[in-house]
Design a protein around this nucleic acid. Sequence first.
DNA 1: TATGAATGAGCATTCATTCAT
DNA 2: AATGAATGAATGCTCATTCAT
Lengths: 226, 226, 226, 226
Amino acid sequence: MSLSKLMGERSDEGQAKRERRKEARPGELLDAALDLFVEKGFAATRAEEVAARAGVSKGTLFLYFPSKEELFKAVVRENISGRFAEWNAEFEAFEGTTADMLRYCMRVWWERIGATRASGITKLIISEARNFPDIAAFYQQEVIRPGTELVRRILQRGVDSGEFRALDMEYATFSVTAPMIFLIMMKHSLGACAPQDYPLDPERYVTSQVETLLRGLCVRPEDQPA
Amino acid sequence: MSLSKLMGERSDEGQAKRERRKEARPGELLDAALDLFVEKGFAATRAEEVAARAGVSKGTLFLYFPSKEELFKAVVRENISGRFAEWNAEFEAFEGTTADMLRYCMRVWWERIGATRASGITKLIISEARNFPDIAAFYQQEVIRPGTELVRRILQRGVDSGEFRALDMEYATFSVTAPMIFLIMMKHSLGACAPQDYPLDPERYVTSQVETLLRGLCVRPEDQPA
Amino acid sequence: MSLSKLMGERSDEGQAKRERRKEARPGELLDAALDLFVEKGFAATRAEEVAARAGVSKGTLFLYFPSKEELFKAVVRENISGRFAEWNAEFEAFEGTTADMLRYCMRVWWERIGATRASGITKLIISEARNFPDIAAFYQQEVIRPGTELVRRILQRGVDSGEFRALDMEYATFSVTAPMIFLIMMKHSLGACAPQDYPLDPERYVTSQVETLLRGLCVRPEDQPA
Amino acid sequence: MSLSKLMGERSDEGQAKRERRKEARPGELLDAALDLFVEKGFAATRAEEVAARAGVSKGTLFLYFPSKEELFKAVVRENISGRFAEWNAEFEAFEGTTADMLRYCMRVWWERIGATRASGITKLIISEARNFPDIAAFYQQEVIRPGTELVRRILQRGVDSGEFRALDMEYATFSVTAPMIFLIMMKHSLGACAPQDYPLDPERYVTSQVETLLRGLCVRPEDQPA
DNA sequence: TATGAATGAGCATTCATTCAT
DNA sequence: AATGAATGAATGCTCATTCAT
């Protein structure tokens, strides 16, 4: 056993823990910030509160993020998944009816976005867009556009295969995105205030929405959900 | 010489200009406040800015509203006129298919709410709900609940008449409200930032949504929209 | 009966009343201001409150007094009695022992100053002196100095007549004025807050003070009060 | 090398300068606030001025005191150290005539209260009592009542020992307290404005008052001061 | 003269940000 | 790197004062 181990094992461990913590700091701060920004909005969230929730001092926050606004942007950047490539591939490879594809799409969306903290970002951006136009534009490019594109491709697949009727494609995508966005907004605003007034079971909500939607999209009665 | 003048109402006229102003002030302030609150949120809106936009000084604002928070509440109250009684009556008296009723409902909603400044209130409340739980609860009681009730009655009429299929009524209402709320949120957030990315024609949007929805609700193919 | 009387009697009466009121305005305002300044101090008294208590509008106050500070000064001026000449004469003419003279002096002081609203001025000036040095100086010249002079003359009379012992005249006057000022300050501050803690009977207070004082001043035991 | 250094207390020293400052801050602020409140009254004292006099910025004041009113209350509390227990003991143990006791009492009062900044508190409370009824009540309980009690015990001792004549005890205490309060009020109001008009030598004032008072209280001529 | 709506300078308080330790 | 005391610009709100009617 080495001398250094004899003398320093504990401090090495201490060091290790601290370093692990040190590297985790920005993440913990972003985590805390996301929660608070979603809950109270950008302006009403105090930097000290973010730091406190992350278990560090006010000063430390500014050690990692030069300003509250940069913290906000980092929160958004951190939580905007650029996973559309992966998802696109997933859907390219999908074998089955487009109706099933859409069902899968919305269920998966709920699991990966709606049910997770990522949904807070959507609420955040929609609420703060006017104060952060560049963030809004960024979100538009990075999330809205590819997401809409993905949805459009699914719908187009349905139309091409003769499953879906002819659609005003520009607006049809909203039939898919609107219920998802709506669910997120409710979850993070009115639904969070008065849960007793919003006993929303998201699974049932998604099912209800997608089945009605499929009826609305499918061309032949026999393809429509019961 | 007018009768009023003969009767000594000259002093009434003397005060007229200023009094008309005085009576107009609260409305002008609420107008300005609505715009700014919708645009920037409650916290980021400065009282002086509201006053300036209403064409008065900072002090005047506080002459009419004891605090910024009371101003906010007044803005909300002012714009939530309980027009549901009138609408309910309108829909009770409606003669025609329930499909037409739903079409009429959503078109009218767009004209009376979505297209007007009242829509800003919805954006406002959804964005600020967590900071104003009492406002949120108030809105829930006064707007959401009666609105949902109205929608439910329409859907029930369709089901009862055999036009619509059996519905999970609790969640089916969201198929109507979600697209409306979504449109409002977009109009006041991302849509307001990057209009070029949201060349939304609301009429076309509403038509697209309602027709797909009706296909999803109607029982017999021949009732469904083409 | 004159035409004007036939046509205008009522308005003449109205006019009269209004004019009487008009002339009374400044006095009513000074009255109200005195009460409030004494009660809450200069800074904490709002101009509007003074006007309201006088039954006029805020604007009217500034019609009669160009500023709150001038109002303050007017209040002081109005209530500082220049009655020392009269009082001096009264005491010049006094026939009797100096002990009785001092008794009379303090009793009369209580009746004419201490028990009246004039006492508020003393409280006011002592409390606000540092903020109104010129007022303080004015009060010093117009009230304190002549008052002290009057007291000094009484004491001197006693010394001269052999009733009182030799006195350090500069400081002896305080033996008369201190208890009077003290009573006023208590009446208008702590005594006004917690009357149950200050069940002061002023007559008994004055008697107690003057009799002890006379014992302290008189030269021969047989002259001293029992 | 010092023991503390050997034991690793360097980091304590490292923080020392700043911590010493931090601990001193409240005291420095209370000091500055006492002066200003006494000088200008509560309302006319600006928070920034207090901070400036304490050598810190506006924000720092509110780091230590949540509001101006709390600062005021802290100033009062800080300066009302309940020294009455100590004084009571001192007077219990006093051996000598009650006349000497009273002389000692008033001299000591001047040295420990009248001549110190603590006297400002008395002025402050008497001036602001109506605006801070709770402070006034607190002062009444904590200072006035025990102080009066102490005086009453002294007087009673004199009466019991046959030195003093029978007294209307309720009011006799004022013969002791009135001159003291009067001196304080003068020192902090008119006396502070026009020192040339108040060339008060407090020692001589106290002597004059106490000797006249003792003459007024003592029963036998031979006990009375010359 | 009297009114009271309007003003805006002034002040208490907050909070993002800095920096000595 | 981490802290938290200190800062001061920013902002809600008050109130003496003005002025159109």
